[in-house]
Every structure is written in structure tokens, then in C-alpha cells.
Design a protein around this nucleic acid. Structure first.
Lengths: 281, 281
DNA sequence: GTTGACTCTCAAGCGGCTTGAGAGTCCATG
DNA sequence: CATGGACTCTCAAGCCGCTTGAGAGTCAAC
């Protein structure tokens, strides 16, 4: 029988850990002196402790380990727990690898003087959403602005106005050019709008579903619509260096649309849906 | 200006998080109503929040992020932080991959009825240690037992007895056979013993350094010295299935050595130093 | 008997939130 | 202008797996 200090050396386990395991009833000393409270451990407890440590190293919670070692759990259940844990670990590995790619991209960017920061670029998920929009190939930027203006004028009038999300533009063609672009302009909906709308310009506005997207990269542009190309260039470099691939059309979400007075007073989120070339380890 | 709820939707960030970031002074609302305490956020704060989220996704602590976004930190320092973080992530990926291998090995073992459990097998590090030992090729098990007995008799007599660790046997040859084995028998030391010792049987006991080992797998055997072969078989299978490679001689550490009366009353740790065939991702 | 090394219990702290209680505020409707 | 319901506030506690520290008691050697 050893006191806790010596046992902790043999078992390579911290004294505080042993006390904690005693406290939560996971692993208790072979004997406890009732009058002094001293814990006494025996060497034959080592296999039991090792089982616990082995399970813990797999990242299983102490609560679960307690069940596994104290209760009689069937082989199937243990297998289930292990499989579950395996899936979890696989996922976190995937996440970590993603982080690595992103950090590497960041480090490369930092080396180059051309770009000041790629800070505000984040990765997120977008849920499925109903979308009330019209789509057309635009000759030039002026056309686009015209369509947007029309939309902002007529759509809120027919919808209950609290049902509309921010004005969103989807750039179906090449997001990096401005002429002859296939553009969709619309509003996300919080509830349904039953009827299509015919704009004075001849474009028809209809409801459709924007599919959910697992990963989009997103950044915020503050300032006028026209001079946003450096943001696109930045996003492009970031995507390339982080090993992503663009998997769909870009979106511009006008969180705060430009107002008549000052077009500089505009806040816009730029999104690219992306995927990663299958990086299973 | 948005109240916290709406801003949390725009920014895809939980209300409780925003409040927490305010509390720790990481990201504060553009305006706080002094009388009601209501927080009001502006869209132009979105880039700032996104920077924070981007850094957080890299696993950087909020404390560090606070420094990075609030204080003026040089590019070099940021680069340093990123490099450090990169190294950390690489390490955790390595660990996770190890876990995966081990879980997979476990699941394979569970499928087969032949082995009941591979539970008590753990991986650990061993520190460098001085070792007071003798080494010889043994004809048979009886010779080994004789040498061990001699060691246990004479060595404690010349050492201050509190300076000795548990009797340890290193199996330099093939750990899976019993005859003609190159065996080293000795004791770990807590402090130096200056002089060699000549045993009656003619073997010389000398001090040397046991190098530290990055990873050894270890299990505990309870019971007699002789019938420990199933443990070895188990360890062997586990090593193979977990994709490890044995990288040195096995050790048997007699945590509780067999006593005269009952040789069954013995607790022994079996160790194999292992490496992994380089698994960088 | 006196060290000094060990041990005990109990409470708090870590990070990054989440949850809940209890109270107050905003805004649209009747 | 009162009411209701959705929102917001603050403050405290809880999560995990420990670690750290305070203050008190115990053990073994000299």
C-alpha cells in the first residue's frame, strides 16, 4: 500500500488528479483511513487506472469512462462509443487541417507588402432561404444600378416591409468583370410572397429558394459600390492560397445600402461559396 | 444602429457572445444607452467583428486577439503568434491522428473474440534515469531468476536503500522468447552510486544512463512472472494494429516483486519503446 | 519533541461561453 | 394610454478536468 504521493509517481499521474478521480467516484483508493482521511493505494489497482488513462487519452469524457469501467456496459455499447468518438476526432482533424491552411495563407499574405491585411475574411455556413429576385444579363454597371434602384423602389411596396432581408445581388457570371454580367437582384424573405411582380423596366420578380451552403467565405466592404475591386482581388488571393475552390456565384449583400446623399455610406458583405478539394487524410 | 438581437443575426454571432465580448472589453457596441443599458451596434463595426471571428477560428485565445486588435502590435509579432499557433495545431493534429489509429486498433480488437480487452495499454514518456545494472546472455529462465535473486540480495545492501527504484529487467534480444536471451537486470537510481559491484556469480553491476524515451507503450501484468506471454501477444497485436513500430528493447518493471511465499503476488509493468512511421500529414 | 515532508479538505480559478432568474424596456396593437 | 409580448438588461452559477492555494493535520526520522 502506497500513500498518494508515491502512487502518483508509480502511475505517472498527478496527485491532484488522483484526488479528483476519488472525488468524482471514478477511481478510489483501495483503502482510506477513516480517522486521518489518508488515501492508500495498492499496486493491483494499476491496471484499472491504466484502463481509465487509456480511455481518457482517446478524449472520452470522465463521465463516460465512469460508465464504461464501473457499470457493466455491453461490447456493442463500447463499440458505439468508440465509433462515435472516432467520427468526432475525424471531424476535428478536418477542422484543424483547415485552420492550418488558413494560417499558412495568412502567413504568405503577411510576407507580401502588396496587401495589408486579410483579417476580416471568415468562413461560415448559410442556411436555406426564400429569395424574391429577378435576373438579367447586364450591359454595364449603369444598367445594374438602374435595376437595383427599381427593385428598391417597387419591391418593399408590395411586400409587408418587415418581411424583407437586405438587398442582395448574385453575380452569376464572372464576378471579376463589370460588363455583360449575368446579375440577379433580390431580397431574402422571412415569409412567403405569393405573387410575382412585373417591374416597369420589364423584368419579372419571382420567388425561389436559395439553397443552403456549407461554406462560404465572407468579408465586409465599407464604402462605395464602385471601388470594391481590391476586396475581390484580396478574396481571390486568399481563396487560392488557402486551397479552396470557388463553387458558385458570388453574392453582394447590402447590409446597409448606399443612401442618396452619400454613396460612401454603404456596408456590404461579399460572399463566395467554396469547397475544398477533398482533403481526407 | 441595431439592437443586440438584430445585430447578432446579421453577424451570425450569438447574443450571449456579443455580451461577453463587451464584458471582457474585446468588442464593444458603438453606443450604449446610459439609462437603460441597451447596447446599440452599427454595421460599420462588422469588419472589426469579422477580424475577431477570423482570429478566433484559428484557435487564438480571446486575450491574445484583444491584444492584436486593440493594441498596435507589429507585423512581426503577429507573424510570431501565427507561427506559434501553427506549430500548436500541427501538434494537436498529430495527437488526434494517433488517437484515431489507437481507436481503430481498439475497434479491430473488439471484433475478434480471441482477445478480451486491450484496455490497460497506455502510451507514455519515460524520463532519462541513471540505472545500476548487469547484463548477460541467459541460457534459460532459471538463470535469469537466479541473477535477479542475486541482484535483489546484494544491491540494496550496498546502496542506501531509499535510493533505489523498482527492479527492472531489460530484454535486449527478442522479447518473445525465453532461452538465450540477452538480459539486463538492474535498479533505477535516484542518486548516484559511485562504485561498481561484483556479484558472487561473477557478473559486474555498473551504473549507466537510461536515455529518455519519447513514447513507450505500457501495460501492467498482475501475477506470476512465468505466465506473462499472453500480455506480450496482446501488446504485439496492439502495436501492429495501431501502426507503431517497436524501437528498442522491452522492459519489465517489477513494481511489486514476487515474494517468496506466493509468486502470484507480483505486479509488473511491461514497456515497449515505440515510434511511428513518420505520419506527417 | 521537533523538524520537515507529506497529506487532508474546502474553495476558487481557468476559458469561453451558456443558462437561468428576476427585473426592466420597447413597440405595436386594442 | 394601457396592455401584451418580444426583447433587453444584470448578475450568478454551471460546464470540464483539472490546478492552485489556504489552513490544518499526520507521519517518520532525528
Amino acid at each position: 500500500m502506497f500513500r498518494i504521493g508515491e502512487f502518483s509517481k508509480i502511475a505517472q499521474t498527478a496527485v491532484s488528479q488522483l484526488r479528483y478521480y476519488d472525488q468524482i467516484g471514478l477511481f478510489q483508493p483501495a483503502h482510506t483511513d477513516e480517522s486521518t482521511g489518508y488515501r492508500y493505494y495498492s499496486t493491483i489497482q494499476l491496471p484499472e487506472l491504466n484502463r481509465i488513462i487509456a480511455l481518457k487519452e482517446l478524449g472520452i469524457s470522465l463521465e463516460q469512462i465512469k460508465m464504461m469501467v464501473l457499470k457493466d456496459v455491453s461490447v456493442q455499447e463500447i463499440q458505439g462509443m468508440l465509433l462515435l468518438r472516432k467520427a468526432q476526432i475525424e471531424q476535428t482533424v478536418q477542422e484543424q487541417v483547415n485552420r492550418l491552411k488558413i494560417i499558412e495563407a495568412r502567413l504568405k499574405e503577411v510576407e507580401q507588402p502588396e496587401s495589408l491585411n486579410t483579417d476580416g475574411i471568415i468562413l461560415k455556413r448559410m442556411p436555406e432561404q426564400p429569395f424574391y429576385s429577378t435576373r438579367k444579363v447586364m450591359q454595364n454597371l449603369f444598367d445594374t444600378i438602374h435595376l437595383v434602384t427599381e427593385m428598391r423602389e417597387y419591391v418593399p411596396a408590395i411586400a409587408e416591409k418587415n418581411q424583407l432581408g437586405p438587398l442582395t445581388i448574385i453575380l452569376h457570371g464572372d464576378a471579376f468583370s463589370i460588363e455583360n454580367v449575368d446579375v440577379e437582384v433580390g431580397f431574402p424573405l422571412k415569409s412567403e410572397i405569393d405573387s410575382p411582380l412585373l417591374l416597369p423596366g420589364g423584368n419579372e420578380v419571382k420567388e425561389r429558394i436559395l439553397q443552403s451552403e456549407e461554406s462560404v467565405i465572407s468579408t465586409i466592404r465599407v464604402g462605395a459600390f464602385e471601388n470594391g475591386y481590391e476586396k475581390y482581388a484580396q478574396l481571390g488571393r486568399w481563396i487560392e492560397k488557402s486551397d479552396f475552390q470557388i463553387s458558385g456565384p458570388a453574392k453582394e449583400i447590402f447590409i446597409k445600402p448606399p443612401s442618396q446623399g452619400n454613396p460612401e455610406d454603404c456596408v456590404c458583405e461579399i460572399q463566395f461559396p467554396v469547397t475544398r478539394p477533398t482533403t481526407l487524410i
